[in-house]
Nucleic acid binder design. Structure first.
Lengths: 316, 316
DNA sequence: TAATTATCTGTAAGTTCTTACGTAATAAAT
DNA sequence: ATTTATTACGTAAGAACTTACAGATAATTA
């Protein structure tokens, strides 16, 4: 029992289930006390039928009581076997099953009404003894969850936490393998690896860093999971290239952080303009570049076959 | 959805179940978000194991988390298949299955801890947005239910209501049949009907009422369900006899009301003493008489074979 | 008007517990 | 030292729903 206090509110789901189980068990006792020949689980269906003499369809009942239509179908079948309801297809629409209380059903309604009000009063009285209002609390939380599901609330925290596990660092000699592997991984998924690629991927220091460029690596929980390079084209003009984030950590916003870090780096080293070349089939990538502030321009022809779009970012 | 508002608090069980379902569904999403390879329903078991490296038995876990041992057994089986726990019988007691996290289990514990605290915070934040405190309300109601189950609370109301449906009336000519039938019903269950019985049961007016006695009938929802007679023995001395309540309405306190009414009647007609004869095997009856104030005395021998106890009540 | 799509149901099977039951092992009682 | 009672456990089956699927009908579209 102290489990709940230890785990805290995270176990609220289990606690609710447990509590509902208690009420269900109690309900069974109460029904037998009143001698009403009604399975407690039939109650919601019975209830809505009792105040709608004209009858309802399976789906309508399901909506009213918040069960699935299948559940209602099963309950109605059982109640029908027990002689409490009569069913018939409607004349207007042969699909719908019109369900009504039978004479026997109507006969037990008054006893059930008594039971209802007794149970309702007993629960009200009990709830009134408590300081916190369970009934309203449930309604409120239900509403809050509808506004913003728990999943979303948790996700926000998750993103923050994941960012804490992510670091952007400068290229280290031991990153040579990873730098190549990360890029080959994605290029091969969409295109063929070209000669120009291999030249840079195999000799990052000679081809990129020595000529005045930079390479950043992203780590997630200590493991290298992404990279991005800033290649010097001319004074004040740099190319953002070789951006790659492994599939395994997609959706954590690591690409965005990498991009921001590269642009920051470009600022530091006095770049006036950063450009990049990509392909329109890489929609998520293009969206990311746009988010980083890049604008599409008609640029010079690329040395890469796979590129069909040119984007630039002015650093003021 | 408006079902709940209509039925009111009586549907609190369903509402709790529904809410717990919502949380369960959300939990599934959250677990997949964190990429923890753990079935949400394993969580409670995992949790207690994580903070008890020495291991726990099936029953111990069940008690901690408030599930049945069978449930734990099933969960452990699944977790074992997933390689998260190791199981072994203990040396001291070969019946108990000692369950421990495996290395793989321990490996995912930290991620689960993060997830826990994120979810916990998210829920706390959400609950804080509400005016009523769901968590405390649940704890309070759980406590209240433990103190006095809902069943008991409802039962009190039920008794009151049933008494409203019960009436004690004076004997009417049309009660002759019922008067006999009610008494024969119970006498035959325990003893044989004697000649003295039949004389009085067949001619209640001549044998009981005309000589200065009274007969009361109890009705439940308009139907005669019990009776009790006050037979004049001598001036100021009356016998309580022929008390019978049909089995169908036992436990509604009708016998008690009948007894009280008869004693009241005795007072009205100026009785100084009421006595009765019964048999010690009829324990509930004796208890009822005692509750009415009767005391056991050594009385004169009874004309009835079945009687072995004599009780009296002084009316002052 | 024919063809496609959507709706209403009921059945089947799955989910996440529970209770019921049988078996092995230990403790208590004769 | 046996018998009997108790305990721990696992399997099976049940409860009260759900989702998935499939068969009719109705509505919509071409």
């Amino acid at each position: 029992m102290d489990f709940f206090e230890q785990v805290g509110t995270m176990a609220i789901g289990s606690r609710l289930r447990r509590m509902s189980g208690i009420f269900t068990d109690e309900a069974r006792l109460v029904f037998s006390l009143y001698g009403v020949d009604l399975d407690p689980k039939w109650f919601p269906v019975f209830y809505v039928l009792a105040r709608r003499p004209e009858g309802l369809s399976t789906t309508e009942i399901a909506q009213e009581i918040g069960h699935s239509h299948a559940s209602v179908s099963q309950i109605v079948k059982a109640m029908s076997a027990g002689g409490l309801v009569s069913t018939s297809r409607t004349a207007e629409d042969a699909r719908v099953n019109l369900i009504r209380l039978s004479d026997r059903g109507r006969a037990i309604a008054p006893r059930l009404t008594e039971q209802c009000s007794d149970v309702g009063e007993a629960i009200d009285e009990m709830l009134a003894e408590a300081h916190s209002d369970l009934w309203h609390a449930l309604a409120e939380v239900e509403h809050l969850l509808q506004e913003k599901p728990l999943y979303q609330r948790v996700k926000e925290r998750y993103r923050r936490r994941e960012l804490q596990h992510t670091e952007i660092i400068d290229y280290r000699p031991e990153d040579r393998e990873a730098f190549k592997a990360l890029n080959v991984e994605w290029i091969e998924r969409y295109f063929d690896v070209e000669q120009t690629d291999l030249q840079q991927l195999d000799h990052p220091v000679e081809e990129i860093i020595k000529p005045g460029g930079h390479i950043l690596m992203a780590t997630y929980r200590g493991e290298v999971v992404g990279t991005c390079a800033l290649i010097k084209e001319s004074e004040g003009r740099y190319e953002l290239a070789k951006m790659a984030v492994t599939d395994r950590v997609q959706g954590k916003g690591i690409g965005l952080r990498l991009g921001e870090a590269v642009i920051e780096k470009a600022r530091e080293i006095g770049a006036a303009k950063v450009f990049l070349e990509s392909n329109t089939v890489l929609e998520p990538a293009i969206a990311l570049y746009r988010k980083l502030g890049f604008k599409r321009v008609c640029g010079p022809p690329s040395p890469y076959e796979r590129c069909n779009i040119h984007m630039e970012l002015e650093l003021t």
